[in-house]
Design a binder for these strands. Structure first.
Length: 222
DNA sequence: ACAAGGATCCTCT
DNA sequence: GAGGATCCTTGTT
């Protein structure tokens, strides 16, 4: 028996919700996926967010009450799944980027085209394909019984952070913000090279300084 | 009404 | 590592 996350879970800052979404389970029909990688799109003033231009018909769910899905079409091809956070009237959400299969693997494989193996669920377009989530899911609540639910899963032992992917159009500050979060040392994560596990940033700076012969280490990035 | 470009994925070199 | 697929949203004329 698993437990639906309440709407209050989502009624917080997107970065906090993103962190706590890692390890939780998405239920859609017979498929259950464990969330392994997310990105926070924050309110206010996040120039990488779809809400950067204010309220529009497409991003309306992001401004609505928390705990609802926001699904949009990316590059004319992929449906990307977000969970709305913060309060009604604030445009913020968490993008679900990667998952680990928990149940319904045959269904997931049947929905998939292309190679399987480690890239099966690493990337936001693949997650929606596996869940059969499309644009009709936008605005739907996640905290009541229905076709798309989020349940309590297993919290990760360690988290890694890095810059968000594909936001080159944003201001530098928001390109670099470490608002992509993933379960550390988890194979079900995309673009792992740019992620740093919590607690290792200081260690990396030290070793970099050592390699540079103790001379001027460059200032930390981000 | 028009043009531009995108929170990606896959294939091929 | 580069490019094409593919179409909707958005801002501009």
């Amino acid at each position: 028996m698993s437990h639906l996350l309440p709407q209050s879970f989502y009624a917080r800052d997107a970065l906090t919700v993103a962190e706590e979404l890692l390890g939780q389970h998405i239920h859609a029909g017979d498929v259950v996926l464990r969330i392994t990688e997310v990105e926070a799109y924050r309110h206010p003033g996040d120039s990488a967010s779809h809400c950067r231009m204010g309220r529009t018909p497409r991003n309306a769910p992001m401004w609505g009450p928390p705990g609802h899905a926001y699904v949009y079409l990316c590059y004319g091809i992929h449906n990307l799944l977000n969970f709305v956070t913060d309060r009604e009237g604030e445009g913020a959400a968490v993008l679900i980027r990667s998952c680990e299969p928990v149940r319904g693997l045959p269904t997931v494989l049947a929905r998939r085209r292309g190679p399987n193996a480690p890239v099966l669920l690493t990337g936001p377009g693949k997650v929606t394909t596996a869940l059969a989530v499309d644009l009709t899911f936008t605005g739907r609540p996640l905290f009541v019984p229905g076709p798309l639910e989020v349940h309590e899963g297993e919290a990760p032992s360690r988290i890694a952070r890095g810059p968000r992917v594909g936001v080159g159009y944003a201001e530098l500050e928001h390109q670099r913000a470490p608002w992509r979060l993933a379960i550390a040392d988890c194979p079900w994560v995309s673009q792992r090279a740019t992620l740093v596990p919590d607690g290792e940033r200081a260690a990396r700076q030290l070793s970099r300084a050592a390699r540079a012969g103790g001379r001027s280490a460059r200032p930390a990035r981000g």
